[in-house]
């Protein structure tokens, strides 16, 4: 694996559990992975494999009880290392032989701890672009909000003024290949198509200048042609911004195209870690589940010809 000291994201032995009517269920079971600066790590898996949960934990956005129950998450940002789960054991206690969490206190703590990391440290784009934009605010304002939030952390003399910020917001809309950025700037999300919403969301996320971007199945709800555009766009912008990315998908083709390394997850466990080159190599030995995925995508023949 990559060196711990240089990685942007370092997740070790992450455990996430949820209470269901049938008792406690472990959706993420001691998962570890790390991402180096500028690297794209793909997480491949079917729905319910825990891939989304393990990345949500990185942003401290898991709702539902009890959520994160163990492990370590380190986020390196501007040369500083932030341990997100270092305080977690203080919020855990035992009750009737089961580990429970002080949910309210933990929620408060994690929001406080994440406040300086959200946006500049890590940010995300989600599956449903239409629902991840505020319906009552114009797209331009939402991009502008990212920039304003980012600038708020800078010392006063280096801050961009209001005008420069709106110019940058417009630039971002151009960079995500909007046809008429000026019109999109003043449009509301309901006036845009799904693909445009997702591109606007990419602008919103990258305008924060994050050190790692989490892309949670960003192409799932889109048409095939629009999908390709979004994937290409992401690849270009990530490279330009020198931003690391965690790309989550169940589409193995997108994965091969975008990712440098891939981890395959199922039932909350990491089954296999492999570089993209290896995955493309038809002759190499694969985990049976990875094989099934490759076969299903038509990447290799059923009888391994």
């Amino acid at each position: 694996m990559s060196d711990h000291t240089t990685s942007v994201v370092d997740v070790r032995d992450l455990v996430i559990e949820f209470d269901t009517p049938r008792g406690r269920s472990r959706v993420v079971d001691e998962v570890s992975f790390s991402v180096s600066p500028g690297e794209v790590l793909g997480i491949l898996g079917e729905s319910g494999s825990g891939k989304t949960m393990s990345t949500q934990a990185l942003l401290g956005l898991i709702d539902g009880y009890p959520g994160v129950m163990g492990g370590q998450i380190d986020l390196t940002f501007q040369g500083e290392r932030h341990s997100l789960l270092s305080e977690l054991p203080h919020f855990l206690f035992e009750k009737r032989g089961q580990l429970e969490k002080q949910e309210r206190g933990w929620r408060k703590h994690r929001f406080k701890a994440m406040a300086s990391l959200w946006g500049r440290g890590a940010t995300a784009i989600f599956q449903n672009p239409r629902r991840s934009l505020d319906p009552l605010m114009t797209v331009g304002q939402q991009v502008l909000e990212s920039i304003t939030a980012r600038e708020a952390h800078k010392p006063d003399d280096t801050k961009l003024n209001k005008e420069a910020q709106s110019i940058e917001a417009l630039e971002w809309l151009e960079r995500v290949k909007m046809v008429n950025p000026k019109r999109v700037f003043g449009s509301y999300p309901h006036e845009l198509s799904g693909g445009m919403c997702q591109r606007a969301m990419i602008a919103v996320a990258l305008a924060c200048k994050p050190s790692v971007l989490i892309a949670d199945e960003p192409t799932t709800g889109l048409d095939a042609t629009v999908r390709a555009q979004v994937v290409h766009l992401l690849q270009d912008l990530i490279r330009d911004e020198r931003c690391a990315m965690l790309y989550i998908t169940h589409d193995i083709r997108e994965m091969l195209y975008l990712a440098d390394r891939v981890i395959v997850m199922r039932h909350g466990k990491v089954l296999e870690r492999v570089s993209t080159e290896d995955l493309k190599d038809r002759s190499s030995e694969r985990h049976p589940y990875t094989r099934t995925l490759l076969e299903a995508a038509g990447m290799i023949g059923g009888d391994n010809e």
Binding site: L59, L61, F111, A122, T123, I125, D134, S146, A207
Partner: peptide, 8 residues
């Protein structure tokens, strides 16, 4: 959550 994630 998206607003939170961008730090606003």
């Amino acid at each position: 959550n998206a607003v939170r994630a961008k730090g606003a």
